[in-house]
Design a protein around this nucleic acid. Structure first.
Length: 632
DNA sequence: GGGGGCCGGGG
DNA sequence: GTGTACGGCCCCC
């Protein structure tokens, strides 16, 4: 039995002998260890929860379930919205069985509800094992491939090898260590290495406007890493080609043709061996384009650490490209989510983040620069390289936040970098649910979503501004009004109650609607927000104490990530697709908010202030001087 | 005002 | 893949 320590970069599962096998992709951490590891875990099985229609018919329910193709049915205690329940944990042979059987199970006479039937298998694994991507994991087991003996192993790494592979082996990435786990993985609290990232950008010959991958070849591919690597691969000789060694453009490497360009692209990724691959709009442009051209020219795109080609999927309204064992991040989506700019072109974003103008060539003129050669071509090389460098610079600013969000939310960086903030919170809460043995609420059906969207909740209090030029202005505002209300009034779906009995004393009662929330115990959502805010305070104080520059940067990213998470909680009760959606909670928050603001304004008026404008969590007032000095 | 459709980035 | 998810703006009625 051996022990291996690694940074968890990515996770998925494959099917071997009809059984699911979890694969953890990592970068080895030990003293004399180098390279990648792929850890296989055959022991984890998918499951869902079944709530029987009546607590007494749990045996009927078990019986009905036993007719199906399952591994086991087990009675377990769980909490559901503050209510204790005995439910059935139903374990399946394969994740595929769940979408196949869940309708059938739901329609059994003794079944009332099914839960947690839509949690992707690899996410379930991370949550249940307490593993956090980008943190260190220790595993015990045995190495399956003796070092370097077989290229890409034999099928055990999930990707069927594509026949004999030729090409230079000189500075290729060593083959990953394939490791079979024999004991549960241990999350470790070790210090972490910095991540290496490689940015890339392609240029395409485009005499007809936007390039079409069936017609227009890729002419340049440029690279930039956060460790100083810079290169442009070109299918055309740089200027001054009469002297092959005298090129002033020493970052340019000439290749014979587009086929070699793509082969060198793969080799560069292998030899640079980055943890993270960055692009700008690379999910929907660069990588699909490279895929199409590589297919046309017969170049295998062995970009994953297991030699697999990128996998293209749809993520909502857009595409995403996954590179196994490395983390491909399209910064465009990050930037669009986190930066509020009118436009999100690479040029605009670079200017905003780095304060520098980017060398620019109008997109539709690239083929002209290419054809003209000479100085024009030189400019094109610089432009292309600079695009890749700009992506690296933007990455340096954006990645720390995403990596810390990953460590808090506990889902892969690939996913986290593409998730809307509401989703991040949702996965954070799903993990919390597991810890508290709570049942996760189901996602709403499409009809429920539209129903929710039709309901409008009254927002914050707004006092129309009094027209005119005001002097002697004071401004008052509540520091984070809504989160304070959620916590102080314990606003949570599991503390909300329709009960008439516990009036007043044991409940907070909302203004206007009179919704009641139990004062105790602390609700699920308030406790989660409370914990995030507390963590943030703790990290900010650590930051003050720290003298190490790098550590301070990490801590700062951590507290920023927590702030971002905390900030997205407030509106979530009113998000139609949120699992913990609650109209009562949503209405109560704003009702209390209006109440607090109005009361404070009334008090201020009594003290001689005249409010001239108010909005949600603060107001402006002019000071008229003390009105009635005797009252106070 | 409300429903439907389109677009963003990339060359 | 135990997937499948945005939000702003314009147009039209």
């Amino acid at each position: 039995m051996q022990t291996k320590k690694f940074v968890l970069l990515d996770i998925d599962y494959v099917t071997r002998n009809q059984e699911p096998v979890i694969r953890l992709f990592g970068k080895l951490m030990g003293e004399n260890e180098e390279g990648h590891i792929i850890v296989l875990d055959k022991s984890f099985k998918p499951y869902i929860y079944v709530i029987p229609s009546d607590p007494h018919c749990i045996t009927d329910c078990t019986h009905e379930l036993s007719e199906l193709k399952l591994i086991s049915v087990e009675m377990v205690p769980r909490n559901d919205m503050g209510e204790h329940k005995e439910v059935l944990k139903v374990t399946f042979k394969h994740p595929r069985d769940i979408p196949k059987l869940r309708e059938k199970i739901l329609n059994l006479p003794s079944v009332k509800e099914i839960r947690e039937h839509d949690i992707p298998f690899y996410r379930r694994y991370l949550i249940d094992k307490g593993l956090f991507p980008l943190n260190v994991v220790e595993v015990q087991g045995k190495v399956l491939n003796s070092a370097q003996s077989s290229r890409r192993s034999q099928g055990l790494n999930g990707h069927e090898s594509q026949g004999a592979t030729e090409g230079s082996e000189n500075n290729r990435t060593p083959k990953p260590c394939i490791f079979q786990m024999e004991n549960p993985p241990k999350p470790m609290d070790s210090s972490l290495p910095e991540f290496k990232f490689l940015s890339f950008d392609i240029e395409v010959y485009n005499p007809r406007g936007m390039p079409q991958s069936d017609l227009d070849p890729i002419i340049l591919i440029s690279f930039s890493s956060n460790q100083g690597f810079r290169k442009v691969l070109s299918t055309k000789n740089p200027p001054d080609s009469s002297d092959p060694n005298g090129s002033p453009l020493d970052f340019v490497e000439l290749v014979d043709d587009e086929k070699e360009l793509l082969e060198k692209f793969v080799e560069t990724v292998e030899s640079e061996n980055p943890d993270i691959i960055l692009g700008y709009n690379s999910d929907s442009f660069d990588l699909p384009y490279i895929r199409d051209r590589a297919a046309k020219l017969g170049v295998p795109l062995k970009l994953g650490i297991d030699g697999s080609p990128p996998k293209f999927t749809r993520t909502g309204f857009t595409n995403s490209a996954m590179i196994k064992g490395r983390i491909h991040i399209d910064l465009y989506f990050n930037v669009r989510r986190y930066m509020h700019l009118a436009r999100h072109t690479l040029e605009h974003v670079y200017l905003e983040l780095c304060g520098e103008k980017k060398l620019d060539i109008p997109g539709d003129e690239i083929h002209i620069y290419w054809d003209e050669g000479g100085r024009r071509l030189e400019t094109l090389f610089h432009y292309s390289l600079h695009d890749a460098v700009a992506v690296t610079r933007i990455g340096e600013r954006m990645i720390p936040l995403s990596t810390e969000l990953t460590r808090i939310v506990g889902q892969p960086l690939f996913d986290v970098s593409r998730m809307a903030s509401g989703r991040l919170v949702e996965w954070y809460l799903i993990r919390k649910s597991f810890q508290y043995q709570n049942l996760v609420p189901n996602k709403p059906s499409p009809s429920e979503v539209t129903q929710r969207e039709d309901i409008h909740v009254v927002g914050g209090y707004v006092k129309e501004p009094v027209k005119g030029l005001h002097e002697n202005i004071i401004y008052f505002d509540f520091r984070s009004l809504y989160p304070s209300i959620i916590i102080s009034k314990n606003i949570s779906p599991d503390s909300f109650t329709y009960e008439k009995e516990p009036k007043g004393k044991n409940c907070h009662v909302s203004p206007e609607d009179g919704y009641k929330f139990h004062k105790e115990p602390v609700g699920f959502i308030p406790s989660a927000i409370g914990q995030i805010l507390q963590d943030r305070i703790r990290i900010k104080s650590l930051m003050k104490q720290s003298t190490d520059h790098r550590q301070r940067q990490v801590l700062n990213a951590q507290q920023e990530a927590l702030k971002r998470l905390a900030n997205t909680f407030y509106g979530l009760y009113n998000h139609s697709t949120f699992r913990w959606y609650s109209l009562q909670c949503s209405e109560s928050i704003t009702a209390w908010g209006r109440d607090f603001l109005k009361k404070t304004m009334d008090d201020a008026e009594k003290q001689g202030f005249k409010p001239v404008y108010a909005d949600t969590d603060g107001f402006f007032a002019t000071y008229l001087g003390p009105i009635d000095e005797e009252t106070n």
